[in-house]
Amino acid sequence: MCLAIPAEIIRIDPDTDTAQVSLGGVVKEISLALVTDVTVGDYVLVHVGYALNKISQAEAEHTLALIREIGELQDAELGVSDTPGTDPGRSS
């Protein structure tokens, strides 16, 4: 199974056909070799360092929300808490 993650283009280098994207605040360099007509501020689906296609901001936000929800479900199953010093898997 492959997973492509939405990312916002924050800078483009036309000389190398690459872009810097923001993935949840983490900046990564990716290839734009597989997409055309993208500009700064656009959202793209990124897989293994390549932008696969351009998507709308609404679609990107919806997909990222689903990914966060999956992470929260996994954390709940593992008994992981975001609150320091607490463990939802333990009772006092």
Score class of each variant (00 low, 15 high):
A76V: 05
S81V: 04
G85T: 11
Y43T: 12
Q74M: 08
L23V: 13
E72A: 06
I70A: 13
H62A: 12
G85R: 04
D17F: 08
D82T: 10
V46S: 00
D15F: 08
T83E: 08
T16Q: 08
D42E: 13
T36I: 02
I67E: 09
I30W: 02
I30H: 01
E29S: 11
L73R: 14
T18K: 08
L34K: 10
A33T: 13
T18P: 02
R68K: 14
V21L: 01
Q74L: 10
T39W: 03
G24A: 01
G85F: 07
N53C: 11
L45R: 01
I30S: 00
V35L: 03
I70L: 14
L52D: 11
G24N: 15
Q74W: 05
G25S: 07
G71C: 05
P88D: 00
Q74P: 00
A19G: 08
V38G: 01
A76S: 14
N53V: 11
A65W: 12
T39K: 12
E59Q: 15
E69C: 01
D42R: 07
D42T: 15
A19S: 13
T83W: 00
S81M: 03
N53S: 10
P88V: 07
A51Y: 05
V27G: 00
E69H: 09
H47V: 07
V48K: 02
H62L: 12
V80N: 05
T86R: 10
S22Q: 02
D17K: 14
D87T: 14
T36K: 06
G25C: 05
L34C: 03
E72N: 12
G49F: 02
E77I: 09
S81E: 04
G79Q: 07
P84T: 03
Y43E: 07
G71F: 02
E29V: 14
V21G: 01
D17S: 12
Q74T: 11
A58N: 14
V27I: 15
G24R: 13
Q57C: 04
L73M: 13
H62N: 15
V80C: 00
E69L: 09
D75P: 09
E29D: 12
V27K: 08
T83C: 00
Q57Y: 02
V48P: 01
T83H: 01
V38H: 03
